[in-house]
């Protein structure tokens, strides 16, 4: 099968990989460049746990053809913290017990960070709408919504590489 070269920026770093025809972005991120923060939950675009940002917009990496990201910017949970300093969303998720098993957390954080980027002062309804594509089976969502509200109050909007 023909491989195709793809160059993109991942959390600010240049990446160059060869991808298979039809290979999805989730697989390229996890096995191609070793960023294990996006998770496989369904492979069919229904659970949101593989959510990443492409040029700042949330996308489901399991449904994104890897070759389409050539020349674009991809952000994942691996790029949220600045060194050992947590992003306000990460700190709020910890303080608010918004992560239990943790499996949906990277996708939730990406969906929430995209929201705070475009709307630094979201209402509760805005938050519910923003994470409506992300399934959590542990928390019942309330701690997550509250954590995102708390992060917004703490100045959660911040630009990414």
């Amino acid at each position: 099968m023909a491989k195709k070269p793809v160059q993109f920026r991942l959390n600010g770093s240049e990446k160059a990989v060869f991808v298979d025809e039809g290979q999805n972005l989730l697989d390229v991120l996890r096995r191609g460049v070793g960023d294990l923060t996006p998770k496989y939950g369904c492979g069919q675009g229904t659970c949101g746990t593989c959510t990443v940002l492409i040029d700042g917009e949330p996308h489901l990496s399991c449904l994104t053809l890897a070759e389409t990201i050539d020349g674009r910017q991809v952000s994942t949970t691996a790029g949220l913290a600045r060194g050992s300093e947590l992003h306000p969303l990460q700190a709020a998720f910890m303080d608010g017990f918004a992560a239990q098993c943790g499996y949906c957390t990277p996708g939730m954080l990406m969906a929430a960070s995209a929201l705070l980027e475009r709307n630094p002062d979201p209402s509760r309804e805005d938050i519910v709408e923003a994470i409506s594509g992300n399934i959590c089976r542990c928390t019942g969502y309330e701690p997550i919504i509250n954590a995102i509200l708390a992060a917004a109050k703490a100045g959660g909007a911040r630009r990414y590489g």
């Binding site: 923060t37 949970t77 990460q90």
Partner: peptide
């Protein structure tokens, strides 16, 4: 605080497929 919370919010918690 849960002992695994930092791993969860940084995406570093090692699930089997990681």
């Amino acid at each position: 605080q849960r002992q695994d919370a930092l791993g969860h919010v940084t995406g570093r918690s090692p699930y089997f497929d990681d």
